[in-house]
Design a protein around this nucleic acid. Structure first.
Lengths: 230, 230
DNA sequence: CGGAAATTTGAGATCACTCAATTGCGGTGG
DNA sequence: CCACCGCAATTGAGTGATCTCAAATTTCCG
């Protein structure tokens, strides 16, 4: 797949020796508990997931979405618990790595360490973008931005078939990601849909007017570099 | 300083050989241009800086604040330009590293690569927190959160003297960080100040009621691990 | 002593929120 | 096959937080 960099044979071998097996998780299940550090790191192989945080009174903010190729749980390595939760949005398959051996990996394969830093830096950029969205965009701009963002990322990893992507999020998810209320999210979604900008049917999304959505969200596709695969 | 991990002599040597010299930047000056990838990476040695992004119509969002010990410009390494700008809020001193030699550093000193990943993961956590703030907190909670956050971080790196910290931000900065308008930021700030929660005089901040501010922002200090020093 | 920038205040307009009710739909048991 | 349940989506109405506009006032600097 052209979204990913080729992996050298010896790296592949190192990755293989590091991994602790793969795992399948049902839609809606918790991958990493919000309040307990996880003993493992993961690479997402298939499906949709998301990272989130909750305030003590229950308000929830989705921090970013995870797609195949994304690395999960790195922050925990360096923080003292209390980071964020990760939940599977669709059925998901993961590749697990024992957390304790991360330093060993950096030591044995500096290239893989470099790649992991790459992934961490990229993930921060995603959060940066989300922060701009919730901080400075209005409701319609936020929705436009989010739909295009998710669509483009899915497209890149080959999850789009005939223009349709699996879209396993309900409106509460979108509201939590956008920093909007459920009701207002619904009204905004409805408005953009009735303008004919996108279609959402039975959990599948199709973008009808990418240009209009990009212009509305002030969000334009930029060439993306292939990402390393761990 | 107890905020930082001790550095082994050979690491120190590697860092020294990697650095390209130090630099002093005036308050308000641009450290990294928002639209041009920088040729260098930096470690902030002294002063306050911040990262930001601007939409095409001029709306600006501050993504995170930078204090001594923070690493600057890592994301650019892995992204295709167009990431974010970095600006000095106070007078600042930086240590510069040639960007092109980053991989070399990972290769020669995997421990330093690991440390850089540490810093990247920590910075992402800061942005995560800011995203929760703009997405889910109201104006008073946001202001409380931000004041405590900045105060605690400054305290940790020894920038607090007799309870006062240099606070080189104007209300526009705070508004841009919080996702609020300038006017509303002012009114909220004023309200919290007249409640006697903090004092701000001639560019210096003092927290009078840390408990109240923490409770208001639903933000509580957590033990922080010492961070690696690059 | 000016003049510009930052802060402060007031007032009205809006966008987004909350509350509450209705609709639509897939599943389930009779 | 149909009545019923529960959850998600939708809609309406009224409220409220935050925004914009505009005008003081104060502070900072030269």
């Amino acid at each position: 797949m052209e979204a990913f960099l080729p992996v050298a044979p010896q790296e592949l071998e190192a990755i293989a020796s590091f991994r602790a097996g793969s795992r399948r998780v049902a839609a809606g299940a918790t991958i990493v508990d919000e309040h307990r550090p996880s003993a493992e790191l993961f690479t997402l192989y298939a499906g949709w997931a998301f990272r989130y945080k909750t305030l003590s009174d229950g308000r929830r903010q989705i921090l970013s979405f995870l797609l195949p190729g994304d690395f999960i749980g790195l922050q925990d390595e360096f923080a003292d618990g209390h980071t964020h939760g990760v939940e599977a949005a669709s059925e998901v398959t993961l590749c697990a790595f024992p957390r304790g051996r991360l330093w060993e990996l950096f030591h044995a394969q500096p290239k893989l360490g470099y790649d992991i830093t790459w992934l961490a830096a990229r993930e921060e950029k995603l959060v940066d973008d989300n922060l701009v969205t919730t901080g400075r965009r209005n409701a319609a701009e936020r929705v436009a931005m989010l739909l295009m963002h998710l669509y483009r990322r899915a497209q890149r990893v080959g999850m789009v078939r005939d223009g349709w992507v699996e879209f396993p999020f309900n409106q509460q998810h979108l509201a939590d990601a956008l920093g909007l209320s459920l009701v207002h999210t619904n009204k905004t979604l409805r408005r953009l849909q009735s303008l004919g900008l996108y279609k959402l049917e039975a959990g599948w999304l199709r973008i009808l007017e990418p240009r209009a959505l990009e212009a509305l969200g002030d969000y334009f596709e930029r060439p993306m570099r292939p990402m390393p695969l761990i």
